[in-house]
């Protein structure tokens, strides 16, 4: 169903191919800004917080790729508060498809793929420059971490949307979770205060998007000293985030249907 709706929207967008192409490019450039920023930082110094340019760009690539894919799939959900405020959610609820799918596919356009371009490009350039002890396991970890990161971000999109059922004006704050999470995971967590790193490990598990798996790929010690198992915990964490998000969504929808907001 999701694919069918997305395809219909895509066809609608494709009626203006030039505009669509330009927009995809523009989206790509906006997405590339963070990478340019990272390169500007490394114009001044070979290492920041113990990490080289290639390593930070590796983090950027995996994070941006995971976030980009999750944004394509579910990013539209952040407009939920707007739908509640304008009363348009009612129109979605009288249709036989989950409102989450309807909101997520709304205005689906290939231009969203523009974000993936700089992410994939940077990742492709960073990987061969990494000084990592490549083994089969480490090679396999790269696509696995992108997949798990995608699922974690997808869960965060849904969580952020669920919150808007109850706090209609909270969109501004939930951006901390989604866009903030995407920004944070572009950098090595060694940059941040220890308590903050604990927070994004145990409370909002952003550390499992790419940080913990990267410690394994790059063979680095964990500044928090967590056991090695943490480096492989991303799939389990992703499953937990999804479960929590599903419960939150159901609760939020039930709340809406009993209060009418």
């Amino acid at each position: 169903m999701y694919a069918l709706l997305a395809w219909t929207w895509t066809r609608a967008a494709a009626q203006y191919p030039v505009s669509m192409l330009l927009l995809s490019l523009a989206t790509a450039v906006v997405g590339a800004l963070d990478a340019v920023g990272i390169m500007l930082l490394f114009a001044h110094t070979p290492r920041i917080a113990g990490f080289t340019a290639a390593e930070v760009l590796f983090l950027y690539g995996t994070s941006a790729l995971a976030f980009g894919i999750s944004d394509i799939l579910l990013g539209g959900a952040e407009r939920l508060g707007q739908h509640v405020r304008e009363g348009t959610l009612d129109a979605l609820l009288v249709r036989p498809v989950s409102p989450l799918v309807q909101i997520a596919t709304e205005d689906f356009s290939p231009r969203r793929f523009g974000k993936l371009l700089p992410a994939a490009l940077v990742l492709g350039l960073a990987l061969p420059r990494l000084d990592a002890p490549w083994t089969a396991g480490r090679v396999a970890m790269v696509p696995l971490m992108v997949a798990c990161g995608t699922v974690i971000f997808a869960g965060l999109w849904v969580l952020a949307a669920s919150l808007q059922f109850v706090l209609v004006d909270s969109h501004g704050a939930t951006k901390s979770l989604t866009y903030g999470g995407a920004f944070l995971t572009q950098y090595p967590l060694t940059l941040f205060a220890r308590d903050f790193v604990r927070g994004v490990t145990f409370a909002v598990p952003l550390a499992f998007v790419n940080w913990q798996p990267s410690l394994y790929v790059l063979d680095r010690p964990d500044p928090l000293g967590l056991p090695d198992a943490a480096r492989f915990a991303a799939p389990a964490v992703a499953a937990v985030v999804c479960a929590v998000a599903a419960v939150a969504w159901r609760t939020g929808l039930r709340h809406y249907r009993s209060t009418g907001s």
Partner: peptide, 21 residues
């Protein structure tokens, strides 16, 4: 308020409805 999609031609809106149902 409309249940149609604001930016789409009516025909496309109806195609989406077809998919939804």
């Amino acid at each position: 308020r409309t249940t149609l999609w604001w930016d789409l031609p009516l025909r496309d809106s109806l195609t989406l409805i077809r998919r939804l149902y």
